[in-house]
Design a protein around this nucleic acid. Structure first.
Lengths: 334, 334
DNA sequence: GTGAAAGCGCTAACAA
DNA sequence: TTGTTAGCGCTTTCAC
């Protein structure tokens, strides 16, 4: 990489002259400015980012810590973050916590050494289970703002972007009830996440509003054989409707139902959390609760940039932005 | 963030003493070292990364430029890269080119200002179509090594990690031929990618080895309605076997076949490129050509680190690592 | 209109 | 054993 020093030497002027010329300072003569710019162009000079960061004490970089990049929803949020960040002149450093508290802590610590100006985080599963939040507070106290999305730690004072999970499943369940479904089941492989719990509660509320019905729930872990468990579940229960809390169970439920000879949506209706992409993976297509992942990412990026650039209010005046879900009807419901 | 200067002041010693003590220099007395370390611990001192980068002229950061993070294969490679990089003490800055040459160029340029020590890249679709490679060469000439994976630009002299695409589909097709399938079709939505072309050639070779058969090919674009096109394709052709070149078509083909009343694999066998995750999205599960995405990522990270740290041979002595695919038999083939 | 010098936080050669 | 100094690349104040 070419430096100011080298340009200055070649032009027989001082470093500061070159710097000023390139920054269009009024101080420098027209002639000189022109010479400088031409040579800079020729050598494809770019100001060294590291030096700038050191000088200005800001990196124009956001640390993003997410639990799982193979989760389609999280990947899509990351996509939204990247796009918005790029538009605003920020880079993103991505760390994957793999749902591990330890890795989350490490990443946070490691980046809190001046590598980034702030964080966007979705809290790891283990962190949520153990309810640890000290590492977040520490970062914030060090002057590094955090924005949390989707999986948030409520006790940490910071901006948040979340989805109306409770309402989403409440409404979805209501819509199946309106179809006169009588045996609506709830299936989930995210029972220990904050969002998973909210979604179950939304479902429960809708069901319990009708004394004649009661909740039918199937809980799985990520490592279970979903196809297998859902198959057994179908065999052991009378079911004519399904609310799937995670990204994959809805698809698998449709395919399993069909393979067992049910007609979808005639015999069974299915609603799941999903996105355009995976909703292609079943016939009929899955009726879907869209979370608008890209918007979530974009909002998170906007919030963190505002914090970093000091446009935001005082430290303990935090915002929580709720992105409303949309129920997109497709072939798997009546 | 606390600095050496502040520590030094509080301890009444010089900055360099503190620095040396923290770096376990032999020069510094035991007593002093202890005092310094204790205070550093107390204040949770971390050396400023930016200052280190400037001083040592290396950032310990890798720029990763990928075309699409919502592509499961690419996301998985990214996962592999991140893990390996982290293990080796590197961070990754992720840029998404969105298959656009322009954005790819921009990202490359932007990070080539000292932000990263090297690049890992999967070439954007537009770049492959237009066959532009100047921006890559420029970066390499600037002293920033590049490792390409999967979608590579063959004319760029750099390390590469690829998959045996040709052989993969050749063997897959052979295996369907061995099942006595007579009308094996090839479907793809990645016709204009280098890997897409290779996969088609592998299929063609296997088919054309039998004079009595000939290729049946369906080409789609990403934005097409795959379910629709595949359905029509099934109706207009006699087909008893499918090789799907991309990540999604295999799943959709199975589901479509079933919805049309075919038995899989009795009437039709299907093989696709996929991963554990999506192979769950059909019943029966998709027989899959595994690309070992995580390994690809890990290898790419290893190669770039070697280049960066100068362990690798001369600039124009480049390696191409081929990661062999594996055909994982599942329910969609006999 | 141009240049010298300080300083961002750190390391390391050299001096004491 | 400890301290002084220079320098990484840049911006910016102040002096000329």
């Amino acid at each position: 990489m070419i430096t100011l020093k080298q340009l200055a030497k070649e032009l027989n002027v001082s470093i500061s002259t070159v710097s000023k010329a390139l920054n269009n300072s009024e101080e420098i003569g027209e002639e000189t400015t022109k010479r400088v710019k031409e040579l800079a162009e020729l050598y494809n000079y770019k100001p060294n980012k590291v030096a700038l960061s050191l000088k200005q004490n800001k990196t124009k970089t956001i640390g993003v810590i997410i639990p799982d990049i193979l989760n389609y929803f999280l990947a899509k949020v990351l996509f939204g973050i990247e796009r918005e960040a790029t538009m605003r002149g920020y880079n993103i450093i991505t760390c994957i916590s793999n749902e591990s508290l330890e890795k989350e802590k490490n990443s946070l610590q490691l980046l809190a050494n001046g590598s980034v100006d702030g964080f966007i985080i979705a809290v790891a599963q283990e962190t949520q289970i153990k309810n640890e939040i000290e590492h977040f507070k520490k970062a914030i106290n060090q002057g590094l703002p955090i924005v949390m999305f989707d999986r948030v730690a409520h006790d940490v004072l910071c901006d948040k972007v979340i989805v109306d999970d409770f309402e989403a499943t409440y409404k979805a369940t209501k819509s199946l009830l309106k179809e006169k479904r009588k045996h609506i089941a709830f299936i989930s492989d995210i029972d220990d996440l904050s969002v998973g719990k909210l979604r179950e509660r939304g479902y429960n509320k809708a069901i319990l509003e009708h004394q004649e019905y009661k909740p039918i729930v199937l809980k799985m872990t990520k490592t279970d054989d979903h196809q297998d468990l859902i198959k057994t579940f179908f065999k052991n229960n009378t079911i004519d409707g399904i609310i799937a809390a995670d990204n994959v169970s809805g698809i698998i439920a449709i395919n399993t139902a069909i393979s067992l000879g049910f007609k979808v949506p005639k015999d069974i209706s299915v609603i799941g959390f999903s996105s355009m992409y995976t909703s292609n993976h079943s016939i009929p297509r899955l009726t879907t609760i869209r979370q608008h992942a890209k918007e979530i990412g974009a909002h998170a990026a906007q919030l963190i940039v505002k914090r970093i650039e000091g446009v935001s209010p005082e430290q303990d005046d935090v915002k929580t932005k709720i992105i409303k879900t949309t129920l997109v009807k497709s072939g798997s419901t009546l």
